[in-house]
């Protein structure tokens, strides 16, 4: 390429973290309820479920709440990126820059992760305590696997969120679309109950959703619903595969520059 006038001192690669750390952190700092809502929401559902279900399901439901929290990042990502694109035309500034769509996605996903970390830490502590109290403390490798699963869901649902946001046309659509997508995905997969509770046809549908494998894997590793190592490996593989497929589709749908 012919060099533009002042190419020295002109970065050709954008950066995500330095910008979105500030964008995310300021958002939480200046809107306290925004920080509180994602922390409280999973507990509201957890409380509701613990009231209507048998006590032995509690650890499963705590893990479910963690997965649910990660999945919900998708709807926050959707809301942010859609309002920045539609209401403020701010996305234009990032498109016409060296940043690139993946760094932008990562930035928004990251700034929303910041808001979820307190909830995850509290839920994690609760899980550790409940399991320890029952005489089955969570082994170290199980924590690592849990982290890995949470990471996969973060990537997957942030991508889905931004993909949908790039297709939404008005502010009005954001809330219903996000609500529909993420609530239905959350309901279809057995986050809050063993998959065996579901009617057979439903179980079949659930097996098409990455969150299902995330739930099965974590429930198995924690010994909540015991499973053979082979089965767990299969779940891990299917989680990886379905996540990869989901991310690929999402990234294809994610429009950075409309046609």
């Amino acid at each position: 390429m012919a060099q533009p006038v002042r190419s020295a001192n002109l970065p050709t690669e954008g950066r995500s973290l330095p910008a979105f750390l500030i964008i995310g952190w300021r958002w939480i700092g200046r809107n306290p309820a925004v920080a509180i809502a994602p922390i409280l929401l999973p507990f509201i559902f957890l409380y509701f479920l613990s009231l209507i279900s048998p006590a032995e399901l509690l650890p499963l439901e705590i893990v479910g709440a963690m997965l649910f929290t990660l999945q919900n990042i998708g709807s926050w990502v959707l809301g942010d990126s859609a309002s920045w694109r539609i209401e403020a035309s701010l996305q234009d500034l990032f498109v016409a820059s060296p940043m690139g769509r993946l760094r932008y996605l990562f930035g928004i996903a990251f700034s929303n992760l910041i808001a979820m970390i307190p909830a995850l830490v509290i839920l994690g502590t609760l899980l550790g305590y409940v399991e320890w109290d029952r005489g089955t403390p969570v082994p170290f490798y199980a924590w690592l696997i849990l982290l890995g699963v949470l990471f996969a869901l973060w990537v997957l649902f942030s991508s889905i969120g931004i993909a949908i946001s790039s297709r939404v046309k008005t502010q009005r659509e954001i809330w219903p679309v996000g609500n529909l997508t993420f609530a239905v995905l959350g309901m279809l997969s057995p986050l809050y109950y063993p998959i065996s509770y579901l009617p057979p046809a439903w179980q079949l549908v659930a097996h098409g959703i990455p969150t299902t494998y995330a739930a099965l894997l974590v429930q198995g590793v924690l010994g909540i619903t015991p499973a053979a190592t082979d089965t767990l490996l299969l779940y891990a593989g299917l989680l990886g595969l379905s996540t990869a497929i989901g991310v690929t589709i999402a990234l294809r749908l994610y429009r950075w520059r409309p046609g």
Partner: peptide
């Protein structure tokens, strides 16, 4: 302004 410049890799 600062965050945008940082996002551009400056």
């Amino acid at each position: 302004i600062y965050t945008y410049l940082r996002a551009r890799g400056i």
